[in-house]
Simulated scan of single mutants.
Amino acid sequence: MNGRVLIIAGSDSSGGAGIQADLKTVTALGGYAATAITALTAQNTQGVLSIVGVDPMFITQQMRVVLDDIGADCIKTGMLHNAAVIAAVVEALDTLATGIPVVVDPVMYAKSGDSLLNPAACDTLIQRLLPRAAVITPNIREAEALSGLSIRNPDDLAAAAHQLLTLGPAAVLVKGGHLPGDSVSDWLVWREGAEAFTAPRFASRNTHGTGCTLASAIATGLAQGLPLNAAVRRALTYVREAIRTAPNLGQGCGPLNHGHTVQPWN
């Protein structure tokens, strides 16, 4: 077991996204995962029924006791549903996690389209959390909302990534999975360069939790000492195989096969 990852995110009762996906991903890639849970959701593959937020002070207490005892080599944030939660998490990062890289998945919408971020909190996300990030991992809808640009083709992915870089993160990965076409392109941009990752598209409905999974896979790579582009490349390969071998559960967007790296114990 190599690489400690503290995950600050919401719980998904269906097990396909959120904290549940994060824990599976870090474990499947050989790391150790600890958590600070920000919200409880009642959801399944068809949508999010309701959300119960966790008090910001309790979120930061979870962070503190984990970091004081176990520590972390990388931190990943997922669902931070309102401005108070974002502000509390950033303050805790500034006081408890100096020098630890942070992977920010700017979770704004569920795969079903349900909103997971209070619209009033977007400015707080941009002003407080994004500048703290080693890398942010928005999908197209999130990248459009944060950058103000429209994304209609792969070239637009790079333009949006460069625009988001001006908001302060050290790097930006804009995910292109929602664009049409036979291939999927994702653009990683940092201050000294850029790299595109392109792969064939799998025709699959089983994509619930891909964003959470990818961000946690990247965080695991960074925690294990991989350079950012190598961590992204491994994470994308892991997610693609998790989609390809998905168990085809549920009636909506099905969950991934997070355990495809794991051999059953007989």
Rank of each mutant, 00 (worst) to 15 (best):
A230F: 06
A223V: 00
R191N: 08
E91H: 12
A42S: 14
A110V: 06
T124C: 11
R234K: 13
K175R: 13
T245L: 13
D73H: 15
A171P: 03
G252L: 00
A28F: 02
T27R: 13
N82C: 13
A242F: 07
L226T: 03
T198N: 13
V52R: 15
M79P: 10
C122I: 15
N206C: 07
H208A: 01
D105H: 10
G113W: 06
Q20N: 04
M57I: 04
A17T: 04
N206I: 00
P180F: 04
V54K: 05
G71M: 09
R201P: 10
K76R: 10
R64F: 00
V102C: 14
T35G: 00
P106L: 06
R205N: 03
A110H: 02
L236K: 15
R64N: 03
G10I: 08
R205F: 00
A223E: 04
R234S: 12
T137Q: 08
T38P: 05
D105S: 09
T166I: 05
R201Y: 06
L165K: 06
R141C: 07
H258R: 11
L188E: 04
N44S: 00
H260Y: 11
V135A: 05
D12W: 01
D68S: 12
M57C: 11
N82Y: 01
E241K: 12
I70E: 12
E195F: 01
R64A: 11
E241C: 09
N2Q: 14
M63I: 10
A120N: 08
P255C: 01
D68G: 03
P56L: 02
I59M: 11
L49W: 02
N44W: 00
A158D: 09
G113C: 06
L236W: 01
N118E: 15
L157C: 05
I126K: 14
T207M: 02
L226C: 07
A171W: 01
I100W: 12
I126C: 07
L146T: 08
T27A: 15
T137V: 08
A194E: 15
A246W: 00
A161N: 10
V189F: 02
G221K: 08
T25F: 03
G31I: 06
V174H: 03
G3D: 05
T198M: 11
F197I: 09
N139V: 08
H258P: 09
F202R: 14
L214D: 05
I140E: 10
G10C: 05
P101K: 10
G113Q: 06
F202I: 15
T77S: 11
V189E: 04
S216V: 03
R132S: 03
V65D: 05
V184G: 04
S115W: 01
V89A: 04
W265R: 14
I37N: 00
L222F: 10
L29G: 05
Q43A: 01
L130F: 03
G31V: 04
A110F: 01
G148K: 09
L117R: 02
V85T: 15
T261V: 11
L80C: 09
I75M: 11
K111D: 00
G18E: 01
N82A: 04
I19F: 08
D94E: 15
S115Q: 15
A39W: 02
G148I: 10
G113A: 07
S14Q: 01
G10Q: 05
L149R: 10
V90E: 11
P264F: 07
N257C: 11
V262P: 07
